[in-house]
Amino acid sequence: MEGTVLKRIRGYTKALSITLWVVIFAFIGTTFLVWGFRSASGPGGETGSIAAVEGEQIPYAEYQQAYQRQYRQYQEKLGEKFDEKILEQLNLKGQVVEGLIGRRLLLHEARRLGIVISSDELVAEITTMPAFSDATGFNRARYLQTLQSARLTPEKFEEGLREDLLLRKVEEWVKGGVHLLPDEAWEAFRFNRASIKAEYIVFSDPKAQQTAIQNVVGLAKDKKPWEEIVRTSGLKPLVSASFAWDRDLPQIPDQERFKETALAMERGAISPIVQGAKVSYILRVIERKDPDPAEFEREKAQFSLGLLGRKREQVFADWIRQARARAKVKIETANL
């Protein structure tokens, strides 16, 4: 049963149709802005669904509203440069569908984990929203008036908000279990600030050079000298300029993979084969200059905080992908 406070917030209002979710959520900035928004009915009497997640249908009307909202956002952002061909290149339809699927998946995971939002939590969220407050704090009349302006009933608004809070709680639950290992901040700082020079062999046509690559791989695994690896490759090694993570290496195709590999290596170490989209490499670090530990100590707190945030985002994204992979999802492509 809902608490007395929540009932007082709602008051007594007549039922209103649901057509302008985006108005309210533009005010309060909830996860509806990421995943899309829900509606009990769609424009034009559209029927059918665009997908099902664990047997739960995603109505076409919900997809249509989410698509239109994203469409308008691109229009506003691009202005005169807006072209519908850009939306096709971005696969906007697919993005919207996956967003709605992702929302359903997280709600499903919340139920599986037993995560709930109490009436007290819902009341606390509503009563701290600036859109519903005046100089003295939460204003019930303003709350009802704002909802009425958006043609929302309190029940429908609170239903959507409760789901938003569930999504937030699931995210917090996943991220809350992620922490930095004892030396992780220093190793990341070292990776980002080190200066490296590498000697490398380029396999410009990996498919045609598979035999040479396999021979080199075997020598590298057996920890043979670099000079023997070079002779076996039959190729002339090249030497890079000194570089750090943020320095461009225009002469090296697939440089992100190249830098990522080299910066994780110690001086004198030989890499495994680095497979890029265009070429493959094997490389040896010939010079390495690490950052001053005193510099790390000065920046440790702020750097660690940023690193932890990125790690939590990555873990959460991986967790969602895993949930997506094991879920029963069916997309009705004919309805898009």
Rank of each mutant, 00 (worst) to 15 (best):
242 S>F: 10
211 T>I: 12
254 D>V: 04
227 E>Q: 11
261 T>K: 09
231 R>S: 14
266 E>K: 13
241 A>I: 05
230 V>P: 03
231 R>K: 15
187 E>N: 14
265 M>I: 07
259 K>F: 00
238 L>G: 09
194 A>V: 07
267 R>S: 14
244 A>W: 03
249 L>H: 00
194 A>N: 12
260 E>D: 11
255 Q>W: 10
214 Q>A: 14
250 P>W: 01
254 D>E: 10
242 S>R: 15
221 K>T: 12
215 N>K: 14
246 D>R: 11
261 T>F: 10
194 A>F: 07
202 V>Y: 12
225 P>V: 00
218 G>A: 09
205 D>S: 13
269 A>G: 09
187 E>L: 14
241 A>V: 08
197 K>L: 02
262 A>Q: 02
202 V>Q: 14
247 R>Q: 13
232 T>H: 09
226 W>R: 00
264 A>K: 11
227 E>C: 07
237 P>A: 08
208 A>I: 08
244 A>K: 12
239 V>Y: 02
218 G>R: 06
197 K>D: 03
263 L>Q: 01
239 V>L: 10
259 K>T: 00
234 G>S: 06
259 K>M: 02
186 W>C: 02
199 E>L: 03
195 S>W: 14
231 R>E: 13
212 A>Y: 07
251 Q>K: 15
265 M>H: 04
232 T>W: 05
192 N>T: 09
233 S>V: 08
254 D>N: 11
235 L>E: 05
212 A>C: 04
222 D>S: 15
238 L>N: 13
184 E>R: 05
269 A>D: 12
263 L>A: 05
247 R>G: 04
246 D>C: 08
255 Q>D: 13
258 F>P: 03
246 D>A: 15
184 E>F: 09
198 A>Y: 01
203 F>Y: 12
258 F>I: 05
268 G>M: 07
211 T>R: 14
